[in-house]
Simulated assay, not measured.
Amino acid sequence: MESPRVIVDVQDGIATVTMNRPDKLNGLDFAMFDALVAAARQIRRDRSVRAVILQGAGRGFCAGLDFASVMTQRGRMMRSFFKWGVKKTNLYQEACWCWRELPVPVIAVVHGICYGGGMQIALAADMRIVAPDADCSIMEAKWGLVPDMSGSVTLRELIPMDLAMRLTMTGERFSGVQAQAWGLMSEVSETPLQRAEALAREIATRSPDSVAYTKALFQRSWTAGVRRAFRIESALQLRLMMGRNHREAVAANRQKRAPKFSARTVG
Rank of each mutant, 00 (worst) to 15 (best):
E2Y: 09
V6W: 00
D12A: 14
D12S: 10
G13E: 08
A15G: 12
V17G: 08
M19F: 02
M19V: 03
D23N: 04
L25E: 10
N26V: 05
A38T: 11
A38Q: 10
A39W: 07
R41A: 15
R41W: 08
R41I: 05
Q42R: 14
R44H: 06
R45S: 13
R47Q: 14
V52E: 05
L54K: 01
Q55V: 02
A57H: 04
G58F: 11
F61H: 10
F61M: 06
G64Y: 01
V70E: 03
M71Y: 12
Q73D: 11
S80Y: 06
F81I: 05
F81Y: 11
F82I: 10
K83M: 13
V86N: 07
V86P: 01
K88I: 10
T89N: 04
T89S: 04
Y92N: 04
Q93K: 12
E94S: 09
R100C: 08
E101H: 05
L102G: 04
I107V: 14
A108N: 03
V110K: 03
C114D: 05
G116K: 01
G118I: 05
L123T: 08
M127I: 00
M127G: 06
I129M: 11
P132D: 06
C136W: 10
S137M: 04
L145E: 15
D148N: 11
V153E: 12
T154M: 01
L158A: 15
A164L: 08
M165P: 00
R166V: 05
R166A: 14
L167N: 06
L167H: 06
M169G: 08
T170A: 04
T170G: 06
E172G: 05
E172A: 11
V177C: 02
Q178I: 12
Q178T: 15
A179N: 03
A181I: 00
A181M: 02
P192T: 13
Q194V: 09
R195E: 15
A196P: 10
A198N: 10
R201K: 15
E202Q: 13
E202N: 01
A204L: 12
A204N: 06
A204R: 08
S207Q: 10
L217Y: 08
L217D: 00
T223P: 00
A229H: 10
S234A: 15
L236Y: 08
Q237W: 07
L238M: 11
L238V: 13
M242W: 00
A249T: 14
A249P: 00
R254K: 12
K256C: 02
R257H: 05
A258L: 12
K260E: 15
F261C: 03
A263M: 07
V266H: 00
